[in-house]
Design a binder for these strands. Sequence first.
DNA 1: TAATGATTGTGATATATGTCATATGTTTCT
DNA 2: AGAAACATATGACATATATCACAATCATTA
Lengths: 211, 211
Amino acid sequence: MINILIADDHEIFRQGLKILLISSNDPEIAIVGEVSNGKDASSFIEKERPDVAILDISMLEMNGLEVAKEAYKKGLETKIIILTMHKDPIMVKKALQYGVCGYVLKDNAIDDLLFAIRSTTIGGKFISPSISDKLFSPQNNKNIDNTKKDITNREKEVLKLITKGFTNKLIAEKLFISRKTVETHRARIMSKLDIHNVAGLIKYAISTGLS
Amino acid sequence: MINILIADDHEIFRQGLKILLISSNDPEIAIVGEVSNGKDASSFIEKERPDVAILDISMLEMNGLEVAKEAYKKGLETKIIILTMHKDPIMVKKALQYGVCGYVLKDNAIDDLLFAIRSTTIGGKFISPSISDKLFSPQNNKNIDNTKKDITNREKEVLKLITKGFTNKLIAEKLFISRKTVETHRARIMSKLDIHNVAGLIKYAISTGLS
DNA sequence: TAATGATTGTGATATATGTCATATGTTTCT
DNA sequence: AGAAACATATGACATATATCACAATCATTA
């Protein structure tokens, strides 16, 4: 039996996924849990220790990658499969750093996911063909190499406010710090993420579920 | 028999939805088509005239609302149900203007969708409780009333480039127009959408599937 | 044809952003 | 205890954005 946790913020999606997995001709699969945000996923994994956790990236409270990171740090045995719409190689790279066993796109077929689940039982890593092609192309290796650093909690806080459309001045007032400090945070965030304008910041925040 | 088209850009989601609908205890439902972008949805509806089209909003080429608008203009009989993650009342308002018969959220249960489908047969409109509550609250009526105008194609073009992080100057160069003209477009977009900063623009673009 | 809307442009002005370099306490980890 | 990372702050400077008001050209349509 493979005990599986499903974490995704859309109920209809979870319901569909559940029935797809159950009605696959793989009798080994059992859905033991279903959560709608990252925090719940993280505590479920720690308490219940499912064999496999299928995680969306964009979720409230904690995103899927953060959940994966937590589980990795704690050395839990649960195998993580990321199931997301995000094709950004950076995401995949991060996921692999956090020890995930699978990375499948939502616009792949269910068979890809089933394959990923099965491959966890023999200890391999499965990355959807549609994304692994891009990932391992010679061009991209340059970009992929310079790992983006994680941003700090305070920086996340600032980033969140930036994505809400607040100006540096307003953010400063909200956080009771100087406008200059906000600018420093902003600059550091952009430097860490290698992004050089607001547009990029917003898209980053949305894609990581921060906003 | 209710003939249904499903339009969503994520294959796994489509597969899950299909099996959920088919295995509902409603024997009336038949899935007659499945497409992954707005353009295909639009032409399928025109050619095949399904009874019901279930449309996601965020799709390539054309978003679900545009598909609904097209069908509405052409006076097609296909009933449109929007199935999306977007809770923004503006979206709902727009959808209703384009004559959709249902608006259901992806984080609602499948039963809400089934109810929406059934209500099309008797000619009603169904809006998920979780969103209709917000929509018809006294506070929101003010905001909802001043209908946001549609932005023009040129403005969309400019908006797309803004969301890619290009500066006004670069956009001007790309479109072979003056920087001042770009600024005018930018100002008009913001005025039409009642948005006052880049952050809002980006989020708007993403939520309407433009970016 | 007259009206409307889309597209293009200009000028002026106050704020805001992006990019430098630099510095000082405070945590946190080894 | 010492190193590394974090949060805070400042100054300077070039660019960019947001918000006014105004106007000419072109296409569509009522």
